[in-house]
Structures are given as structure tokens and as C-alpha cells.
Design a protein around this nucleic acid. Structure first.
Lengths: 224, 224
DNA sequence: CCAAAAGTGTTGGCTCTACACCCATGA
DNA sequence: TCATGGGTGTAGAGCCAACACTTTTGG
């Protein structure tokens, strides 16, 4: 097969893009940036860029997260690799999409020079996205929603300690329907993946008992 | 942040590799080839090769399946993208691993010149594999086993029509434990994903009623 | 007639869901 | 004292797992 001269310029380039998700307490949000080189289009994009030689894909993803002004020590998971030759009009760029989860919106620094700005958007009302990034965000969201059902991935979307109501809002938002508080609590408790922390959250109302996840490593358990 | 000259030669190359699985009736098997360029090592590998510019990843995978002497009109699903710089000692090659399922061992033609030979192996006793292909096969197998539990993916591992016992062997082999025939049949039947075909399979013993999957498209249903 | 695979129901235990009221706090 | 979110138990229904014998065929 193939007889074309193997000019390296004729190979597809390879990039990583990160779908950055967090949960605000009321909705899922995603962090988007405006790349300087396409800022004329007004489109937003997921943080991302080309992979360097001798660099791990994960490393590339973390490097791009830093460049976007985000913490890089986050949960990171490969989502899907997009290779449609026409996904980037400029050149054939194969992109490995990553999913990353942030507990709070702890946006550390300001984005690097390659971006004009960055901002959080509710996933229900996204702006127009460049390339196939809209598909990536949808896929990332679907993955999180699925994994909430059978893993302890929630720990990456919540602060270190949280109330049962926090956890319930997350699940209820993910499922798009209300949950029965008693049944939800019983079920989660029965799994033994949470630990009471000796603290209450005080607010305008009755204080809430706080919990944290027992294991900080990814764990598969049937939750829903 | 990189300041290296962006010499295209310094970009990782991109390849696809296909984990080819089938079910013999007693065990899962995978199809491996011996690439001519590493035949001295005696190692086997999954069919695969570099992606061409302006080619879809799926197209590349199907092209490589053909080159390995397999039918290309098979179930194909992206598995994972392996990008460790040291996975190929020769150069930094990022590989998009695919999973493909074959109903019977319908190996059509003989492999292209790039391979010295191809052969099926039971997954329990694999030869030594090149690169990180052993990990790929394990991952592919795990994916199939998981998906048997919540999709109709079994249709891609069985012939067009099959007996209930065939289906049961597949599941029982996938789970690594015997299944209760009555419970299994009731459960599958209740889902309405099968259709009786007006034919029996005759053999040395009592003839078996044959069935086929109602939908030929991928479908998510809770099976186990 | 024998060996081997195909086919078929019932029951008890367990899990899941539905459901409503009181409590603690700050304002 | 009121508004707001936090916390708690039970009962009925449905689901699931365990379990063994008869049938059909070819040799």
C-alpha cells in the first residue's frame, strides 16, 4: 500500500485538548479560553496545544492546563482521540482529548500569552466553540455523568469535605432529576466510601455534618 | 513553555493499532501478526501502522486491518491512545489503539508484505508481544468484557444466528464463572433484544433453537 | 439404550422505592 | 418566630438467585 514519499511534513500533527469541568453547586461548568491565533473569530476553545516529542500525552495535557492558568495537579483522564482531517481547517491535527475535573473553581494564575483570556461557562449555555471542541465538551460531560454512577469520581468535583446535600446536588444535577434524600443517603452510606469528618458546616441554617471520601484513589463501586 | 524550533521532524508520529478479538466458543482469541521489520525479535504485534495525512483514524484502522488479511467491515471502536515516548524504541510514535471484533475467524486473505505471517492466539496464552501491545490486548479484552454487561456488543462476536447456549458460553467465558441457564435465558428474553429465527441447529444432540439480535446497531441495555 | 446438550417454573430473600415530619440555626 | 436547609424510618412491591428434572437427538 501507500507509495507516497514519507515526507514528515505530510504526517498529521498531534495535539492534546483538555475538557475542564467543575460543579458550581447548581450546574456543571467548563473552563474555556480564547486562543490568540483565532481570536478574530471570537470563538472559544478548550485549553490545548501540540504535543512535543519525547513528552507523555498526560504531561502535555498538564502542561497545557498550566498554560491556561489552571492547577495541573488535577484528576486527568483520557477521553477520546479526534482525528478527522477536517476538524482543523489549517492542517491535519489529531487531538487527544482529556477530561479534567476541578473541585472548586480554583483558577490559579492568568492564562499564558497564547490566550487572550479564559472564563468559566455553564455547560447549558456554551458560546460558540472552535474546531470540534463542542463535541469534546459534550463527550466529557457525558463521561462524568456516567462515571458518577459507578465510581467515586465525585471526590474530584467536590471540596475536601462536603455535606450530604452537596453530594446530593451533584448527583441530582448529573441525573437531571431530583433524588430522594433518605434513599440516597442510605445507599451512599451502605457503600462505606465516605468518612465523617469531625466538623460541621455552619451557615444561615441548621449546620450540616461534613464528610470526605475515604479513598483518594479512583475506585469502582456501583452507586446508582 | 518550549522554545525549541518547531522542526516537523521533532513531532511525534501517529499510528493506529488494532486489537482484533473473536470468540471461539471456548475462549477469546486475538489475531496477531509478525511485522517484517521486527521479525528478528520473534515478537508478535497487533496489526497497525502510521496514519496518513488527510485520513480518518477509523479509515487508517480499517486500512491496517485489510493489510493484515482481515475483513475491514467489522465492529470498530476506539480503545485508548498510547503516547509514552519510549513505547517504541525507534521513535516517538503515538498510537491510537482500536478494538475490533470478528464473529467467526473469517480471516479472508493473507497478510500484506509488511507482515511475515498472522495467526490467532488464545488470550490466556499469548506469545511475547512487541511495543506495549500486550497492554493493548489486555485493555481490549477488558473493554469487551465490560461492554458485554451493558450493550448488545455480543452480536459482533457471534455468527448471524446462534443458539442460547452459544450466547451463554460467551457470557460465562467473559465472566469467568458458570451462569444459571434458566436465569440467564429469562433475563435475556425479558430484554427483547433477540429474535427467534425459524431454524434449528442440528448436531449430535437435541437440536437448538436459533436466534439473532434484533438490532444490528450498537445499543445500550443493562444485561448483567 | 445411552450420552450429551436443550429446554423449562417456583419460591424465599433481599433490595429498592415511595413517602412526611421534626430539628437546628441565624436573621 | 420564621424561613431555610438538615436529618431520620418503615412498609409494600418487584427483582434476583437458587434450585433439578424432562426432552430430543445421534450414535
Amino acid at each position: 500500500m501507500a507509495g507516497l514519499p514519507s515526507d514528515p511534513n505530510l504526517r498529521p500533527k498531534i495535539a492534546v485538548d483538555a475538557v475542564v469541568l467543575s460543579f458550581s453547586g447548581r450546574e456543571f461548568q467548563t473552563y474555556l479560553v480564547q486562543p490568540r491565533d483565532i481570536s478574530a473569530t471570537g470563538k472559544w476553545a478548550c485549553p490545548g496545544g501540540l504535543v512535543k516529542v519525547s513528552e507523555t500525552l498526560d504531561d502535555a495535557a498538564r502542561r497545557e492546563l498550566s498554560a491556561a492558568g489552571l492547577a495541573a495537579d488535577t484528576y486527568l483522564e483520557q477521553l477520546f482521540t479526534f482525528g478527522n482531517p477536517s476538524r482543523d481547517p489549517g492542517a491535519h491535527v489529531v487531538s487527544v482529548a482529556y477530561l479534567t475535573l476541578l473541585a472548586s473553581q480554583r483558577q490559579s494564575s492568568t492564562p499564558a500569552e497564547k490566550y487572550t483570556r479564559g472564563s468559566w461557562f455553564g455547560v447549558a449555555a456554551l458560546p460558540e466553540l472552535a474546531y470540534d471542541h463542542s463535541m469534546m465538551v459534550r463527550l466529557g460531560l457525558a463521561r462524568v455523568q456516567a462515571k458518577l454512577g459507578y465510581t467515586n469520581i465525585a471526590r474530584n468535583l467536590l471540596p475536601h469535605s462536603f455535606s450530604f446535600s452537596d453530594l446530593e446536588s451533584l448527583y441530582s444535577c448529573s441525573l437531571g432529576r431530583p433524588l430522594d434524600r433518605r434513599n440516597f443517603r442510605r445507599r451512599i452510606m451502605a457503600m462505606g466510601i465516605l468518612r465523617r469528618v469531625p466538623a460541621l458546616r455552619r451557615g444561615n441554617h441548621r449546620p450540616a455534618q461534613l464528610y470526605r471520601f475515604l479513598k483518594r484513589t479512583p475506585q469502582t463501586v456501583q452507586i446508582l
